[in-house]
Write a protein that binds this DNA or RNA. Sequence first.
DNA 1: ACAAAAAATGTGTTCGAACACATTGATGTT
DNA 2: AACATCAATGTGTTCGAACACATTTTTTGT
Lengths: 347, 347
Amino acid sequence: MKKYTIKDIAKLAGVSKGTVDRVIHKRGKVSQAALEKVTKLLEEIDYQPNLIARSLKNTKNYHICVIQPNPEIDPYWQPCIDGVNDAINEYKSFGITIDSYFFNHADTDSFFKVNEEVLKQLPDAVLITPVFHKESIEVIKKYNANNVIVSTINDPLELNGITNYVGQDLIQSGRIAARLMEMIVPRNRDILIVHLDEVFNNSIHMQLKEKGFKNYLKHISNSNYKLKTYSLQQADLDEKLHDLLNKPNAISGIFVTTSKVYSVAKIVENFPDLNIKIIGYDLLDENIKYLKKGAIDFLINQNPKHQAYLCITQLAEYFLFDKKIPKQKLLPIDIVNSENFDGYTNN
Amino acid sequence: MKKYTIKDIAKLAGVSKGTVDRVIHKRGKVSQAALEKVTKLLEEIDYQPNLIARSLKNTKNYHICVIQPNPEIDPYWQPCIDGVNDAINEYKSFGITIDSYFFNHADTDSFFKVNEEVLKQLPDAVLITPVFHKESIEVIKKYNANNVIVSTINDPLELNGITNYVGQDLIQSGRIAARLMEMIVPRNRDILIVHLDEVFNNSIHMQLKEKGFKNYLKHISNSNYKLKTYSLQQADLDEKLHDLLNKPNAISGIFVTTSKVYSVAKIVENFPDLNIKIIGYDLLDENIKYLKKGAIDFLINQNPKHQAYLCITQLAEYFLFDKKIPKQKLLPIDIVNSENFDGYTNN
DNA sequence: ACAAAAAATGTGTTCGAACACATTGATGTT
DNA sequence: AACATCAATGTGTTCGAACACATTTTTTGT
């Protein structure tokens, strides 16, 4: 199982390593005879270039900028930083530098400002978390014009300018929630779908989850759930939810399409007799607290940490080892309950 | 953000690269003055050696042998091969060769024979799937005596001779099943725990799962489930299960601790009125078929493919880049239903 | 047939770390 | 003073691929 080098092949073919190199890289300037001889040999021994030697030659330092919402404003984004940090540690000695930039996810201006700053630096790639739908499309165009590779996570923009998207199938995500709900909420009951955020949010992921949720329940026979949808900001939640829970024909299940499910659980906790089942998103500490108590029944893990990590990893492997980047990478959608959350938080 | 090389540091410290090298590798033969100057400089600029250059120098070809049950006899083991193949593709151009060896998981002799063959080759590392508990301990001792690194997956042997174990917390795995069962089976009902395999199996993972399952149910108040445990080989299943299902006070939930859950579902299917909930293990095609139909309610994914892949990856990164191997790596325990299995099978 | 142009082929250097080997300088011994 | 000893330091080569540059061979035009 010898490892063949260019030199070995040159000797075997009776030519110089320069010629072998020209054949491998299709640089031309090679006679038909030499071309055939070397090509045949390369195939025969299944030549695999030593990627370590190859990338050693390439001494360039690659620069990746990460642009994401400030986790101090919304803690949901903290795992992204952790994922990025893991990637930094893994690749810093390979000549890849990564800088993070934060914007306020309630303020499109800050988003534009940060992107301008990044664009000035002309990094090799940017990783954008597109919470602002149409604004993101705008800035991505600018990056494309400047040959900056654009990667996105979390929210599929369906855009040509994006090199790779790492995320989840959000419609399917909604279907999963519906299937779980079906298993734990008796038929004919009322189920609430709640879109909940601190601020107005023009990203579409909540709508896609709702679509999947309804879609699943529509196609099972005799389900007869009564569905109601509310789009709320956190400030309004308390009043609205109390209204609903105090009505006579109360609800039996709540599907919260965001990571803010803990604030729903906090209120519902006070109505233990209603035996309301709650399903929501993401492994925030606050969510896990209620999951352990049994106030939240299931959490669906969007795995932002792994999304960010994987995205950076793909870029790094592309720069360093010429590895192809898949246009889209859909991560598994983890179902989390009070017993298995540990495996997802400690990774 | 310049990347400093040994040469840079030599120049800055006013010494030769040889001296810097001696400091970095603590080879001695360096004056106190030079040592201090270089050490200080290294810290100041947080010197990170270029791992690519370092490993280029190391031209050794590492050899890893994988020893696992023959997937043609038990298809559960096919994903391991897929995981290993992924790893092969990823590392073949880095000077890592991997050979697979299969044994019959019903025949300890074949296990010994294969291990003998592997030992003769003196590979750098072996990846063993220890389905035979005490036999595995025996062969691992031999590998240790010959300085062959031993990695294991799937079944924690709690043994000193093992360099790394990649797997899951099996007790917790049982608890997860119990938590799910609790959510979908009404209280006071009968629940069956079934250990099911084609052959007699002396590995302990089934016992650990049972322990976790019982442990969880014991500690919830008023659960009052009646638990019964059966250890069966597939040949005896049909008769035994029919017996049980035809009794008056029939069971409402079945927890199968192995991947053979499909053969339970196949029988239970014929008793739709009993509305029996089934939870089992692993994403075999046959299991997913029943999961989709609703005959199986949940599958717990042990992710053998990722276990194998990760194990090889860790070894490779250790050989190539001196990366530390964690003694134990516990993978998350995935809860799979009819809607999210796709994300786990297509990876 | 011969020079010039073009094509084919060969040679040598580089990347950064590792290490074998060579050189320097200080100290001690006779 | 001459020489051996030994610690400290410096130099040069290697790993495999990539590519610039040098050299040889072939083709073309007159």
